[in-house]
Structures are given as C-alpha cells and as structure tokens.
Design a protein around this nucleic acid. Sequence first.
DNA 1: GCCACGATGTTGTCGTTGACAACTCTGTTG
DNA 2: CAACAGAGTTGTCAACGACAACATCGTGGC
Lengths: 206, 206
Amino acid sequence: MATSTETPRRYHHGDLRTALLRRAEDVLAEDGADALSLRGIARDVGVSHAAPRRHFPDKQALLDALAEEGFRRLGRALDDGAAGGDADPRPFVDRLVALAEAYVGFAVRHAALLELMFTNKYRPGASPALVDAGRRAFEAPFALMAAGQSAGDVVAGDVERVTTAGWAGVHGLAAMVNAGLVDVEALPELLPEVVERLVLGLRPRA
Amino acid sequence: MATSTETPRRYHHGDLRTALLRRAEDVLAEDGADALSLRGIARDVGVSHAAPRRHFPDKQALLDALAEEGFRRLGRALDDGAAGGDADPRPFVDRLVALAEAYVGFAVRHAALLELMFTNKYRPGASPALVDAGRRAFEAPFALMAAGQSAGDVVAGDVERVTTAGWAGVHGLAAMVNAGLVDVEALPELLPEVVERLVLGLRPRA
DNA sequence: GCCACGATGTTGTCGTTGACAACTCTGTTG
DNA sequence: CAACAGAGTTGTCAACGACAACATCGTGGC
C-alpha cells in the first residue's frame, strides 16, 4: 500500500516531506490517529525509519503539519461554501445552511483529521503557523454572521460572541456525527433543521 | 505521586482494580490520554507491570472502564441538573440552562475524560455496558425536551430529532471549550445566551 | 573540471511500552 | 491440611520514538 510510483529507489527521495504527509493522512483516515507511527509511514513510503526526522524533528511536528494543512483545506471548503461572500444573493438562511453543510461535510469526510486539528491547535506551544491557519479557516462564518447583522437577519452585538453562540450548534452537530451520536444518514434531514432553528434563535427580537 | 496509603505492601493489593482506575483517571486529568500507560499507573500504584492484566485484559479494557464510569458520573450530574424531573417547578428555559450548565461544567472539569468517553463509546466493538452507560447518561435531556413539548414550550415532532437538534448547541459549546475555541472565562456569559437562543429556535411557530 | 560542503537518508542503539507466558504467593474450601 | 484458584511477579518480545554516527548525493565556489 502506498508504494510510491516505483522509481527504482534513488538515494534521495525527491519530495519525502510531501510523501510522508500524504501517507500519514491516509493512515489517519483509514486506521485512526493511534495507528499512526513514524516508522510505519516511513516503511510505507519506502524509506528508512529515521528518514522522517530530517523533515519532522519529532512526531508532534508531523501531526502539526497535518493539522495545519487540514485547517487550510477546511478554510477553502468554508470559503467555497460561503461562495460570493457579501455579494452572495441567496437569503441568509440558505447561506448559513451552505456553510454548515460545508463544515459538517468536511467533518464527516475527514473525521480523524478534524479531531487531530482541534486537539493540536490550542495545545500549549502550538506553532504560530498552526494557530494562524486555524484562525483563518473560520473567517467565512464570522464574515457571514457580520453580514447577517448588517442585513438585520441577526441580532446585534459582539460579532465574536454571536458567531460563537451560533456556530456552536454547527460544530456540535459535526462533533456528534463524528462521535457516532448522530447517524450520517440522518444528516440531510437534521442539518437544515439545526440551522433553521439556529437562525430563528439568532433573529433580532421583533 | 499517588503512593497508595502506605500499607506495608501485602502481596495481594486488596482492591487493585479500583486503585488502577483512580490513578488512571488522575493521570488522564493531569497529563492527558497520551500520557496514560499501563506500566506507569502500575508503578504509581506500587505493583508490577503485569499486574493490571488480571483486571484489564488490555489497555483498551481499562479505557473502556474509565469511559463507562465517566458516563455514569455524567448521568448523575445531568440528573442533578434536571433536579425534580417533570415536577420541577422552574420554567423550561431555566431547566434547560441548568442542564446545560451541568453538562458544560462536567466537560470543563473532566475534559480529557469526556473526550475519551466519546471516542470509545461508539468505537466498533464497544462493550454493551459502555454503550448502555452512554445511553443512560443522556436520559435527562431527552426527558426535559419531551416535557417541553408537552408543555408547549418546544415544537412538536420526533423527540429524538428535536433533542438532537437542540442539544447540538450545548454539546458544541462544551466541545469548543475543551478545544480551546471558547475561553472558560466567557462561559458564564455565553452559556445562557446559547441556551436562550436555542430555546427561541425550538419554540413552536407562534 | 572538481571538490568541499550541506542537505538528505541510513544503520545502529537506547529506553519505554503493551502483550504474553511461566512461575509464585496466598487464603479459602472441602 | 492439602489442593486449588485467584492475584501478583519476573522475564521476554516486538514495535515505537528519539538520538547519534555514518553514508550518499548534488551543487556552488574555485
């Protein structure tokens, strides 16, 4: 498995760092974080057990790199879900549903990765790059909520607090799915309901 | 650390299983799940490295036992938060706030344990006892939501679905706190807001 | 042209861990 | 009081992460 394109084994791999990350991500997705060993992915990639050390000083560094890449991809997924940004013509609810779908979809497709992302981002001593990637990933939800406030769809107040209060439902749904508390099959029905009730709750008092 | 009450070392420990669980829980709370090793807790408890095997066939069995005990305690915490059950005289919102506080409080006090609980409960092949403990733990939220429906505070419909949609916000808030996305300091202000908006969202259409 | 040096991989080793086997201690039961 | 079963012990193995010392490659300065 994951035998790299069988170039006849040059001494220098060419792009070992990337190959390691790719294989690590596969292992993560297939067998979970506990099954991820540096020696294992080194074997899979066809390289000696100490080779990864040149690219990742320790295992944590590789996990951080995985998490950082994950946040960048999550950010792109959310940006795509947000589509046109403030110019998006759809009504607020639909835009939030799209964003929530993007988020929960990512969570379902990359369950183990998402867990790793969150357990490593705010670990004391996380690299600035990782923390920054995590911050950027969530720009779309904040922007959408701010737009919702401007348009009068969302109660006024500190954007950070309102977004957090609102996003908790989406994050919670994703977490519950990944924990097995919610069946993936139920999502198409449940997600719009969660978002709808969320929007009702966020509406300014009439 | 955790030198058991210095009985002069009998050959038979007396209640090794309990001692191991206690020490394991301390390690979990202090240093996280990754720092938890069977040999380590055996050392701490003053017993040989293979002794735990008599009580837990493998590491997973100990983790399962920890999770199961955690669910029982979470269940008690939620039951306490729900107080009088259907006879509780407080208005629906206040009862839900109390329940949410109990949940988030547990999550904050036992962050690592809660994570372990969720990552182990629905793992394929989890013991029936563990799954059952997990199910029982959440009886109070379901009961409260059902009561809310009877009283007309909550929109009608499948209790399971409505509860899930509603509880997602609470679970998400807890998850965000444990992930570091939300500062614990902000909770006293944020939690009632989340619950309030949740209740607004769950109200039957007027 | 070439060679010296730095980047990249390799082999070898250490301490720790989880799992397992074989042995020993102990107190209860018949 | 002897046998037995439950509870703990020592010993061992393979895998892992970390580290050190060594090997190989390719590129830039001369």
